[in-house]
Design a protein around this nucleic acid. Sequence first.
DNA 1: CTTTTTTCTGCAAGTAGTTTGCAACTCGCA
DNA 2: TGCGAGTTGCAAACTACTTGCAGAAAAAAG
Lengths: 138, 138
Amino acid sequence: MVDKNQELRDKGLRLTPQRQLVLQAVRELGHATPEEVAEKVRSTHPGINLSTVYRNLETLENVGLVQHTHLGHGGATYHAAEELTHLHLVCGKCGSVGDAPIETAASFVNTLIDEYGFKTDVTHFAIYGTCENCTAKS
Amino acid sequence: MVDKNQELRDKGLRLTPQRQLVLQAVRELGHATPEEVAEKVRSTHPGINLSTVYRNLETLENVGLVQHTHLGHGGATYHAAEELTHLHLVCGKCGSVGDAPIETAASFVNTLIDEYGFKTDVTHFAIYGTCENCTAKS
DNA sequence: CTTTTTTCTGCAAGTAGTTTGCAACTCGCA
DNA sequence: TGCGAGTTGCAAACTACTTGCAGAAAAAAG
Ligand SMILES: [Mn+2]
Ligand SMILES: [Mn+2]
Ligand SMILES: [Zn+2]
Ligand SMILES: [Zn+2]
């Protein structure tokens, strides 16, 4: 546990219970909205304020421990940084979120670098479309 | 101008001045947020309400005359449907929005269909990353 | 035309998600 | 142990968008 404390301290952050809980919640939840993170944290520590969750998500993102992604029209969802190794395939019809390895986009990403000098982060926005199921139904 | 009227009537919509103005504004503006559309419309017709703009954008989208795209963390932006022929390359550092032809993504899109049965709409969300300029500066 | 039906508009209020100011607190360090 | 900067809770503010409703105005019917 000294190690785990170090992880945050090494980034120049104070080790508050709230901060540790937010980070832990993000790691356990996979994709989670700030609201969901708050709910998770509160299941064991009821007093924690939603604005504290927002502020910590931002802080943790600034030091690179978490990252946000946009899966839909609404708010962002948060991931532990280590975990961001897949694309999100969001179906506009049914709302399902599928995964695909980032390598799927590798040559597309390379083309954008070569032709536009543009370095894509394919995980930041979802890949939007229609899933197999919904295509079949229509 | 009878033609232009038909365009909306053919879709089963009433021809109100507000609706025509919203459509015209979207066509003239390229990417525009609902707020920007409202501003444009009001420059010639001050009384028009923001909720009327929202409702008309939705209606026009339902009949396929306009479409929305997510360029950033905030709200959606609207395009005339005919015009949606390019990807948006959004730079997270400077906020610039570059364009690239949709064909750039063609083989990526095909891979997703083949391997996941997922039909991508590459224009719905922006392609997020870092532009050439910002990469150079850092 | 005029009447009737139906859709649409403006307005005001409401909601969802997120941010901010501030006083009190507490973590890390001397 | 005590200090100061960083952090928290709380309330209020804010942004983007939606909704209910009553009156206005298109289009359809007569
Ligand atoms: Mn959308
Ligand atoms: Mn973002
Ligand atoms: Zn689906
Ligand atoms: Zn840039």
